[in-house]
């Protein structure tokens, strides 16, 4: 197991909270300093998506396209053809929500290193409601050949992911959140595109999270331990390409897998893991996330509770699943 340091205070709570988009803003500025080919384009949401730090330092390399998301990514594709490394940002509901075909044809199929940055994903968007809570983006983006899909766990990882996709030479989608979320990784915590990380070793059940859900799973693992369940926590920031080896090794060890994401489980991260396991290592699987409905207005925390996605709710749902699976396995009726 790779060393995977995380920070938590004595009571187990992450010491600070920060929106992931802030990490993106810092990462983009640093990417711009490292590589002069990096340019940034925005669709009337420059401060909301935290591109303003880059804009202020590199005004010549920042482009305002107005409220026009289809134009945003297609202009970026043209700039990429001219040798630039364009970062585009909007709320994920609009990019890639509105301009999916343009991304497919002009960035992915055309193989241009356009970076699509979708802030405001998940129910974390809160009171703006369902139209603005992007839940389908993981499914939409991971079915696109050539595309890299990254959902960082916190703002520090978002910063690293921004630098990694800036240097990757490929089209990429970066999934961010609007509201502050717990910051539990550290500057020295490893991050590489395409890699999943085991945060906590365990033997009873693999609990794999992406994005904001990884922290909630860390909390859930503590609660599960008190309940006598030894969970292995796997963090999967890159959903495509998926680190199959790490996930399969863990599934082989525990025989029971749970996925968690702040997104539709159909076609999402849970969908990706279901495809992997059913093809290569049939394993009992519970997918936690948003299950075939839209979000609604409310505070981010209220909504996570309503959808059963806080550490406590996750622990209860994982416990019920694990006990049920052990009972059927004990009765010899079904193999794991």
């Amino acid at each position: 197991m790779t060393e995977y340091p995380i920070q938590r205070s004595a009571d187990g709570v992450a010491p600070v909270q920060e929106p992931m988009r802030a990490g993106f803003g810092r990462g983009l500025l640093e990417a711009g300093r490292r590589d002069e080919r990096v340019v940034a384009l925005c669709a009337d949401l420059t401060e909301s998506t935290m591109m303003h730090m880059f804009r202020d330092e590199f005004p010549k390399r920042f482009v305002e396209v107005g409220i026009a998301e289809q134009n945003l990514v297609t202009v970026a594709s043209g700039m990429a053809r001219a040798g630039k490394v364009p970062f585009t940002s909007s709320y994920a509901a609009f990019s890639p929500g509105r301009n999916w075909e343009q991304i497919k044809t002009t960035a992915a199929l055309n193989d241009m290193p356009v970076k699509v940055v979708g802030s405001h994903t998940g129910v974390n968007v809160g009171p703006d409601g369902a139209t603005h809570q992007m839940l389908e983006d993981i499914a939409l983006m991971r079915v696109m050949p050539n595309m890299t899909v990254v959902a960082p766990a916190d703002s520090i990882e978002a910063e690293k992911a921004t630098l990694a996709i800036a240097a990757s030479g490929s089209p990429a989608y970066l999934r961010l959140t609007r509201d502050a979320t717990p910051v539990f990784t550290l500057p020295e915590t490893p991050f590489e595109l395409g890699r999943a990380y085991v945060l906590r070793e365990g033997t009873d059940v693999t609990i794999a999270g992406t994005g904001t859900m990884t922290y909630e799973l860390v909390v859930a693992a503590d609660l599960l331990e008190q309940l006598g369940i030894d969970a292995e926590v796997v963090h999967v920031p890159t959903i495509k390409p998926l680190d199959e080896q790490t996930l399969l090794a863990s599934a082989r060890k525990t025989g029971l897998v749970v996925t968690a994401e702040e997104a539709q489980i159909a076609g999402g991260f849970g969908g990706a893991v279901a495809e992997l396991l059913s093809a290569q290592l049939p394993t009992r699987l519970l997918r936690l996330g948003i299950d075939d409905r839209y979000g609604e207005s409310g505070s981010p925390r209220e909504l996570l509770e309503a959808f059963g996605l806080t550490g406590q709710h996750l622990a209860a749902r994982i416990e019920a699943f694990a006990r049920g699976a052990l009972a059927t396995a004990g009765a010899g009726s079904a193999s794991a």
Binding site: P127, D128, G129, A130, T131, H132, E296, S297, G298, S299, E302, L303, A306
Partner: peptide, 8 residues
């Protein structure tokens, strides 16, 4: 949360 008057 729960209102008919959604944000949008």
């Amino acid at each position: 949360y729960g209102s008919r008057l959604q944000g949008h």
